[in-house]
Design a protein around this nucleic acid. Structure first.
Lengths: 223, 223
DNA sequence: ATATGTTGATAGTAATACTATTAATTTTGA
DNA sequence: TCAAAATTAATAGTATTACTATCAACATAT
C-alpha cells in the first residue's frame, strides 16, 4: 500500500529560483499553472493571471520562476521524469527484450491518467500541456545554450532509454536513436492530430489507438 | 527551358488583407520576413523590425497581414503548396506504387534547396522556418476555428497524398493516415534534432540521412 | 484635373514582461 | 518569547509589443 504524495523528482536547479515544492505558495503555483495553461493555453498564460487565480501576487511568483518559459521547462522536466519512472517501473524484472519494448512503448504512447501519488500535479492535464506546448519549449533560438544547461536532459534520457531497448531487440538495426525519438515525438503529435485534425488520423475508429499503432509498427520495423 | 519566377500558388484569401504577390512592397514583405524569421526566430520577429529592415513602415505591413501569426500561416501554406507540387511532379507518369512511394517520401523528407523558379522566396530558408516554427502555427487555442477556415488544408493535403500512396502500396495496412502524418511531422522533427539534439539521432553519421531512414522504414512497415 | 489607391509618418492605447521598493506577515531559533 | 530573518503582498514604474487611427504625400488612371 502506497501513500499518496510520496512521489518526487529532482529537477534541474537552474530552472527555478526557489524550489516550488518547498512551500505552499510554490505548490499552488505548480498545481494552478498546469490547470491554467491547459485552460487558456501557454501563449495567453501570464504570471499576473496566475497570481489572481491563486489569490497571490505576480511578484511573488517571479521569486519562484524567472519567467513562464522556465516554468514550462520545469513542468516538462517533471513530466518526463515521471514518464521515465513509469518506463523503468514497467520493465522491472522483465527479461525478454521484446516484452520490455512493448511495455516501454506502451508507457510512452498511451493515454495518460492522473497519478494519485502526486498531490498537486494532475498528470492527465499535464500530458495535455506537453502535447500542445512542449515543442515550444525547445523550438527557440536559445535551444543550444539551454541544451548545454541540461534543460532537456530528462527528455533525452527517456528517448535514450527507448533507443537502448530497441538496440537490445535488434542489435543490427541502424537507426535505434532516430526511431526512438520518432516514437516519442510522434506519439505526442498523434494525440494532438486525433483531437484537432481528424481527417489525417486513423484513431477515430474505436479499435485503433496510438499505443498499439506504435507497438505494431516497431515489431514490423525490428523483425 | 523554364523561366524563373513563374511558379505561383493560390493561398487561402483569409490569410491576407492584400495579396502580397501583387506589389513590390508585398513581395519584399514575403522575401524579408522569411529571412528575418530565420535569423531572429518567430518569437522575436515583429512587423516593426521588418519595416525597418525593408525601409518601410510598420503600418504598411499591417495592410497586408493582420498579424504575424497570419503571415506565418501564409508562408506555411505557400511552403506546403510547393511541397505538394514537387510530390505530384515526382510521381508524374510513374505507374509502380512502390516507386511512387519512394519518390514522394523522398520529396517530403529530404534536405531542401532553393528553387530558382521562385524569385523572392528562398525555399532552403523557408524550410528551416517550417522545421522550427510550423508547429507553433497550429499549437494554439484557435486551432479548431482556424482549421475550419481552411488554414491547414494544404498541409493536410500533403499528408493525404502520402496516405493514399501508402494505401495503394498495401491496401490492407490499417494505419495509412497515421503513418503518413508520422512521416511528415517526423521528418521535420528529425531535421531539428539532427541540428540541436545530436545525442538522440543517428544522422550525424555521413552515410545515414532522414530520407533514406523513412524510405527504408516504410518499406518494412508495408511489406 | 480630379478621383482613387498606396504608402509613410506620427501618435496613441492596452497588454505584457518584467524590476524595484517598501510594507506586512510569518517563521525561526536563541 | 522576543527579535531577527525570511517570505509574501502591494504598489509603482519601464520598455516592448501588438496593434489602431489619422492624415499627408505621392503615383496612377480616367
Amino acid at each position: 500500500m502506497k501513500l499518496p504524495g510520496n512521489l518526487r523528482f529532482t529537477i534541474n536547479e537552474k530552472l527555478f529560483l526557489k524550489d516550488p515544492e518547498s512551500s505552499d505558495l510554490g505548490r499552488k503555483i505548480l498545481k494552478h499553472s498546469i490547470l491554467m495553461i491547459d485552460e487558456i493555453g501557454f501563449d495567453a498564460f501570464t504570471f499576473k493571471k496566475l497570481g489572481e487565480c491563486i489569490g497571490s501576487n505576480e511578484s511573488s511568483i517571479y521569486r519562484y520562476f524567472e519567467n513562464k518559459h522556465k516554468l514550462l521547462l520545469y513542468l516538462s522536466s517533471w513530466y518526463w521524469s515521471w514518464v521515465e519512472y513509469r518506463m523503468l517501473f514497467a520493465i522491472q524484472n522483465i527479461d525478454d527484450s521484446k516484452e520490455k519494448l512493448h511495455r516501454v512503448v506502451y508507457e510512452v504512447t498511451c493515454e495518460v491518467k492522473d497519478d494519485i501519488r502526486t498531490e498537486y500535479i494532475d498528470e492527465a492535464v499535464l500530458n495535455r500541456i506537453i502535447i500542445s506546448e512542449y515543442s515550444k519549449a525547445f523550438l527557440t533560438k536559445e535551444v543550444d545554450t539551454e541544451n548545454k544547461d541540461g534543460f532537456f536532459l530528462v527528455y533525452k534520457k527517456v528517448i535514450s532509454l527507448l533507443a537502448n531497448i530497441i538496440a537490445e531487440v535488434n542489435p543490427e538495426y541502424p537507426y535505434s536513436k532516430s526511431l526512438a525519438s520518432s516514437v516519442v515525438v510522434g506519439a505526442l503529435n498523434q494525440h494532438f492530430i486525433k483531437r484537432h485534425f481528424k481527417s489525417i488520423t486513423d484513431f477515430s475508429e474505436p479499435d485503433k489507438n496510438v499505443a498499439s499503432f506504435y507497438i505494431q509498427t516497431l515489431d514490423k520495423i525490428l523483425l
